[in-house]
Structures are given as C-alpha cells and as structure tokens.
Simulated scan of single mutants.
Amino acid sequence: MNYKVLDDKIVVYDKNCFNAKHILECGQIFRFKQLANDDYVVFSGDKKAQILEKQNCYEIVCSDVLYFENFFDLNTDYQTIKGELSQKFSILNEACQYGHGIRILKQQPFETIISFIISANNNIKRIQGIIERLCTRCGTNMGDYYAFPTQSQLETLTVGDLRALGMGFRAEYVFNTTKLLKGVNLQKLSKFSTSKLLEFLISLSGVGPKVADCIALFAYHKMDCFPVDTWIKKVYNQYFLDVNESIVAKGTNILQKDNVCEQTKNCAKCENISGTNKTETAFLNDENQTTKRVEDVKIIRKNLTELFGNLSGYAQQYLFYYKREMDRRGI
C-alpha cells in the first residue's frame, strides 16, 4: 500500500486499494456523511477524519494520523488478498474489481457492539439517525460533532430514554448489554479465539449469530468470520451451492494450493481448483440446476467459512457489496 503519513493527514496514492465510497458504504460502519462530490467525513469514538479525493490520491485529514492509519488498516496488502480470492471464482473476480477499494476497518469494540445491536432488522438511514441522536444525547461535545458515548455515559440513560431516540424494541437490548459490559475490558477480548469471542458476544442482549460475526469482524478483525444476511444468502445459492456440495463435503479449503480432486483432474465441479475455471460459470449459473436452495444461515456460514478460511471476512465484504449494488441497479 503506497501512502504517506504527515502531521495532519495521510496521503493514500494507491486508489485501486482505497476508495472512500467502497469502504464506508459496504455495510461495516454507520457514522459517516458524504460531503460534496465523493468526499466523506467519518467518525470513530471521539475522533473525526475527512476523506478528500484528489486526482491521483486520497487525503485523510485528521488530528490523529496514527489512529486513522490503523483504523483504515493501511498496512494490510489488499492487492494480494484480492488476487487470491479472484483467481478461484469468477464471481469474486467481478466483486473484487467492483469493490476494489474496500478495506475492513478496525473499529472500537463498544461502539461496534452498540451500533450493530441497533442495526438489527433496520435500514441504514434509520440506523444512522438513531446513532446520531444517541451521540447528541449523551456523547461528549467535540465542537462540531458529538463523540460516540462511552460505557459510563451510556449507563446514565434509561430504557425510556433510549426508546425516545427511536430505538424501539432495541432499547432494552442496548440497556441490558451496557449493564452486562460494565467492568469488562473489551480490548482484551481480541486475544480470545474466534469461537470463544463469538460465544461471549452471543451472550449479550440483542446479539445473535449474524451480529456477533459483524462485531468480531469489524471490531476485532477476526477474518475467519462470514456474516450471513439476505444478500449473502442470495450469493451463496446463486454461486456457491454446487461448489460446497462437491468440495466442502470433502473437507477441502478452496484456497489451498495444489488441491486437486482425487477422482480426476477434469472433474467439472473441481476444475477451478487446478488452476482453470472454464466450467465454473456454466455449472454455478445453470438455470436448470435441480439443487435445492439452502435457507439455513448456520449451514451457509459454516460452508462459506470452510471455503475461505482466514480470508472469509474479506470475501464476505466484496461479495456483500457487489451483490447489494448489482441488485439495486437491477443487474
């Protein structure tokens, strides 16, 4: 990643691996606003950064450059990650090209937990409105914006206060989880294994498997998580159903090298493993295929994490963003 850290800004020269719209509008964060053109402002905790697009670069203007260098995960080589994902499936090649500038943010755990509880069965505009009202209600006044509330600040609100912000049934979840987290060092949870972390998160009020996966991925960078929602269910049933039947059943990770079907190197459903994907589109998109749809989220999550291993989180973001945007455009 080609970038330079200055006193009051970060200059990112590699626009193929950094795009403000892709990063902020791929479902991983809610506290941002679009400014003129393709410029944005993003908030994290009590911090703010403006992302300004220039002809040959992006400028991340902020008062804490080291924080936002980590926040945008600038030290990770996304070009290599996209290359690994793209070479195996044509759909991922398309998705990585479309959302080429996605980077998975490193967000603050408490803010991520509360934000994704609020996000359950909700739409983006409403989620953003609720969170903004929450920040204004009890977050620290930073001058031209309000910080996300700390745990102690949020503890001052009642269920009624939270309902008044428009949270509805989620108010009780936020209230109860805030109490449950009192005295918990959320940063130390990063040392937990993914399974242990998910177990803890699901014990919180209002946190189910999908929300837990989102928190683990976006706050703790657990890349072996694959949050499954409506868009991922569509992707799975359209592009990965047959792949999972023929490969995951054998306990195979699709991203392992030199992994060839023992039956024959010309097996139509495994051919992409040996370096070619000539038949991939044909059998994945066959409108006449008789394979039944899979609706069980647990099965979809299990199969996709087995397919992508420690690249699951990256694959999820590229696929989610691509499918959602294509459907919105009627493609």
Rank of each mutant, 00 (worst) to 15 (best):
M1V: 11
N2A: 05
Y13N: 10
F18Q: 07
A20E: 10
H22C: 07
I23C: 09
F30G: 07
R31V: 02
F32N: 04
K33Q: 12
Q34S: 10
Q34I: 03
Q34P: 00
A36F: 01
D38G: 04
V42D: 05
F43G: 01
K47P: 11
L52M: 12
Q55S: 06
C62R: 05
F71A: 04
F72L: 13
D77Y: 11
Q79N: 15
E84C: 06
S86E: 14
S86N: 11
K88C: 13
K88T: 15
I91D: 12
C96F: 02
G101V: 01
R103T: 02
Q108P: 00
P109K: 03
E111I: 03
T112M: 09
I114N: 07
I117M: 08
S119P: 04
K125W: 05
R126W: 09
I127K: 01
I127Q: 09
Q128M: 11
G129N: 11
I131V: 15
L134V: 04
R137K: 15
M142S: 05
Y145L: 06
P149C: 05
T150A: 12
Q153F: 10
E155S: 15
D161E: 01
R163W: 02
M167P: 13
A171F: 02
F175P: 00
K191V: 12
T194P: 05
F200P: 03
L204A: 02
G206P: 03
D213H: 07
A216Y: 08
A216R: 07
A216K: 06
F218N: 06
M223Q: 10
M223G: 01
D229N: 09
V235E: 07
F240R: 05
L241I: 13
G251F: 09
I254Q: 04
C261W: 13
Q263V: 14
C270A: 12
G275S: 01
T276Y: 12
T276L: 11
T279C: 09
E280W: 13
N285M: 14
K292G: 04
K292T: 14
E295V: 12
I299K: 14
N303G: 02
L304T: 13
L304S: 06
L307I: 09
F308H: 08
G309P: 10
Y314G: 09
L319K: 12
L319Q: 13
M326Y: 07
R329A: 15
